[in-house]
Simulated assay, not measured.
Amino acid sequence: MTVRSILNEKGHDVQTIPPDATLRQAVELLAEKRIGAIVVTDAERRVVGIISERDCVRVIGLDGPTRLDDTVSQVMTSKVVTADGNESVHQIMEQMTAGRFRHLPVVQGGKLIGLVSIGDVVKHRLAEMERESTAMREYIMST
């Protein structure tokens, strides 16, 4: 199974924010949409960063609420690992586990086309395991 299969099931909607937005705007969007990360994109929808709840909590926890006036570009992770729609679910599981991140932007032709979370991956993998288990039970019962 591929990343594309996850996106086809969950959809391609992604919350984005420009790098010159404030951290306050990012926090409000995270809270309003009840999400864990926002992809930071430029005007052409190219990924330039990602900002997560963890990033916000770390910065505000260390420096206080005055950081809410900083720009997203000052706080975001700028070296973003991305995926291609053709990568396997196993490949991205390994990347996310090794990198210890929970959100993976999906790009095609250099532009953002979706976002996959670790929850999406786990849900997809559990459904896949259930299908395999059902197929095995049906095979055993038919012999």
Rank of each mutant, 00 (worst) to 15 (best):
G49E: 02
A127D: 14
P105M: 07
C56P: 00
I118C: 04
E94H: 09
L104P: 02
G61K: 07
E53C: 09
H103K: 03
L104C: 06
G99V: 00
E32A: 15
A26N: 06
P18N: 08
R102Y: 03
E94V: 10
D120W: 06
G61C: 12
V116E: 04
C56Y: 01
A21C: 13
V75R: 04
Y139C: 00
S73Y: 05
L30M: 12
I140V: 15
T134V: 11
D20C: 01
P105A: 06
Q95I: 01
H103T: 03
K79R: 13
L104I: 10
T77R: 07
S88L: 11
V81Y: 01
G36A: 12
M129T: 06
H90S: 14
T134P: 00
F101M: 05
H124K: 15
A26V: 08
E32Y: 09
R45K: 14
M96G: 03
L23K: 07
V27T: 13
L62Y: 01
I92C: 06
V107G: 05
E44C: 00
L29F: 01
P105Y: 03
M136I: 13
A31K: 14
I35K: 09
V107I: 15
A43V: 15
T134R: 14
R34P: 00
E94Y: 04
E28R: 15
L68P: 03
R34L: 12
T41Y: 06
L104H: 02
R125K: 12
G49N: 08
R100A: 07
H90Y: 10
V48Y: 03
K33E: 12
I118Y: 08
R54F: 07
G49P: 05
G49I: 04
A98N: 12
V80D: 01
V121K: 06
D69R: 09
T77Q: 06
G110N: 08
R45I: 02
G61N: 11
E138D: 14
V48W: 04
R100V: 02
K123A: 15
P65L: 09
R67P: 00
M129Y: 11
E138Q: 13
R54H: 06
V116D: 05
G114T: 06
A21L: 13
V40D: 02
E132K: 11
S52V: 08
R131L: 11
H90C: 00
P19G: 13
K33F: 09
T82C: 14
R58F: 08
R125D: 01
T66C: 00
E132I: 10
P18I: 01
E130Q: 14
V39H: 04
E87G: 00
E53Y: 03
E128N: 05
R45V: 05
T66F: 05
Q74S: 14
E94D: 11
E53T: 11
